[in-house]
């Protein structure tokens, strides 16, 4: 196919004086698992609902496979949506819920039954097919909602925080399953989420939204390693952000610790991930800082140490939990450091 499957051109939504989504242009390729990541209230759900046809855009256009669908109602769009709270029909069984879309299309009984059985198998719900929705658990409901949307083979499947209501363990199991389903049946998925782990696990492309704008898009790994600004660096993964000043191409992080960084004189943020920081007096690193260890937080396979610089700034350092016993006592002075090139310097806006 020529061109992207889904294209947004300057799509915006305003409610009176409030702008929920600033003009946004995105191109989503066929078979992408595309994620829109952002904090709550950033406009990501509004953007998704505009694609689904539930919110009329204030301006801009939506094209699916080159055809303009901006003015079409949801029932006439080639999109399918999985809603955050599922919107299952409580007076119907799992089977009836899944069959509903095909019944609207007057599919012949035999084809319908076969398609529903296939879907039930895909989401592992064969044993629960004839239960009413209120008799299903949260995870089972989630699967019914997914199957109900997938059975219509939408050109674009829209997932609005579909796993937000599930507990962590179930959510992780569903991540695996969603990946498998996407690999098995293909298709273009757009996921809205505020959970960066979910997005990293599932998506091959990500758009990060903040304040109604897409602030960065690209592959998850690129966004993690090269965040466009301090917001992205802090939202996608953990990040230490140290404000500093650049003067004649030199940034002074602390007395005696300087980074060479060519650029205009202005305030900057130095961003360094907790796992990039090395710990201990023997660390052979280019950049070194003196700090005081104030807290140690056990997180399972790894742990976080919180250290305070003389400037008052706080730094999170990630260590292997096996090394936790060899750490100096809380309150001790320690040396931290990282290799040149592991940090990022972002101009303060």
């Amino acid at each position: 196919m020529v061109g992207p499957l889904l294209e947004l051109r300057g799509l915006a939504k305003r409610y009176g004086a409030h702008t929920a989504v600033h003009p946004t242009s995105l191109a989503i390729e066929k078979n992408d698992f595309f994620a829109i990541l952002g904090p709550s209230g950033c406009g990501k759900t509004t953007l998704l609902r505009m694609i689904g046809g539930f919110v009329p855009p204030s301006e801009g256009r939506i094209l699916v496979a080159g055809a303009d669908v901006t003015r079409l109602p949801p029932e006439r769009r080639p999109t399918g949506m999985v809603f955050q709270n599922y919107g299952l029909f409580p007076h119907m069984t799992a089977r009836q819920n899944i069959a509903y879309g095909l019944r609207l299309r007057r599919t012949a009984r035999r084809d319908l039954d076969r398609a529903v059985d296939e879907m039930l198998a895909l989401v592992h719900l064969e044993a629960f097919a004839d239960r009413l929705v209120p008799q299903l658990s949260g995870g089972q409901r989630q699967r019914v909602a997914l199957a109900r949307a997938l059975i219509l083979k939408p050109q674009v499947l829209l997932l609005d925080e579909p796993l937000a209501a599930l507990d962590l363990k179930l959510r992780k199991a569903m991540h695996r399953e969603l990946r498998q389903i996407h690999q098995a049946i293909g298709g273009t998925f757009i996921l809205v989420s505020h959970d960066q782990t979910e997005v990293m696990t599932l998506a091959n492309r990500v758009a990060v939204m903040n304040g109604g704008k897409v602030v960065q898009q690209g592959a998850p790994r690129d966004i993690y390693t090269r965040p466009a600004d301090a917001f992205v660096s802090a939202f996608v993964g953990e990040a230490n952000i140290l404000p500093a000043n650049r003067l004649r191409g030199v940034i002074e992080l602390a007395p005696g610790t300087v980074l060479a960084d060519p650029g205009p004189d202005q305030p900057v943020n130095v961003v360094i991930r907790p796992e990039q920081i090395q710990f201990g007096p023997g660390a052979e690193t280019a950049i070194r800082l003196q700090a005081r260890m104030v807290d140690a937080i056990f997180l399972g396979p790894f742990s976080h140490l919180r250290c305070e610089l003389a400037t008052g700034a706080s730094l999170l350092v990630q260590i292997d939990s096996n090394d936790l016993n060899r750490m100096p006592a809380l309150g001790s002075n320690v040396t931290l450091g990282w290799q040149a090139g592991n940090h990022l310097v972002l101009d303060q806006a």
Partner: peptide, 18 residues
């Protein structure tokens, strides 16, 4: 009756009356 149920029905191709 949750509004999402209506939105979901529309999404699957049902008219408002349906």
């Amino acid at each position: 009756v949750d509004e999402t149920e209506l939105a979901a029905a529309r999404d699957m191709g049902a008219s408002g009356g349906r």
